[in-house]
Design a protein around this nucleic acid. Structure first.
Lengths: 115, 115
DNA sequence: CCTTCATTTCGGCAAACGCCGAAATATACA
DNA sequence: TGTATATTTCGGCGTTTGCCGAAATGAAGG
């Protein structure tokens, strides 16, 4: 499979697009994302692996948590272009993404992390 | 499913991306595409339906054939942007697509259409 | 009207995908 | 060292996807 199709596959899922949009607000740990998406932790972890594998995000382990960041500096031009596109609210503005962004502001990992 | 994910799903298949790249060279009928992809006619027809449903292509019936065109004027900005991206050889240049383009120049529907 | 032929639709099958809970891993800290 | 906790990996399950051949559709020409 060509690399470009791998990128599109990574974006071809509602939850994964939501994750990218959420990371636009700020870096998040797995359990924060889990809280907002309301999916099993294992499922979220797999989504994150797919996005990371495609190059859209990267993770940094900090203390107890693994923080996920948008990979804005990825040198792959296709990844850059697609990330740009997904982030553009004029192209891809969806009600659910606005709600998610609000929730990102409110979630506190110290409150909700008792899986 | 949000519309944007529908667009990504349409692009998340090697054959469908190949079709878009081929249509960049010139409009094609189903059996020309079938010849190059080497898939069943019904399969090609389904791929085309998915791409058309997403807004990336449209079809015009002409004589015996249904010609498929890139929908370059689609008013949907997301479709435009993605089509732009896919067509950019600097972002998505693949050997197979170059070969396909060559074959597009050579295929002749009058020769090969005896399914 | 009837045949021809390009295309689409249908039914079915195997592989891929998204989901889960449970087990494994890793990391902090007592 | 031992326990707690955040995350990943594993096995399995139901759904979706991509593929095919066969049947249906639709338009052109005899």
């Amino acid at each position: 499979m060509t690399d470009m199709v791998k990128l599109f596959k990574a974006l071809a899922d509602p939850s994964r697009v939501r994750i990218l949009k959420m990371l636009q607000v700020r870096p998040l740990c797995v359990c924060e994302i889990r809280e907002i998406l309301d999916l099993a932790v294992s499922t979220v972890s797999q989504h994150l692996a797919i996005l990371r594998d495609a190059g859209f995000i990267y993770d940094v382990k900090e203390n107890k948590w693994v923080n996920y960041y948008l990979h804005r500096q990825n040198q792959d031009k296709a990844v850059q272009a697609l990330l740009q596109l997904v982030q553009d609210p004029a192209l891809f503005g969806d009600e659910i993404h606005r709600l998610d962004a609000d929730r990102v502001h409110r979630v506190d990992r110290n409150q909700l992390c008792r899986l």
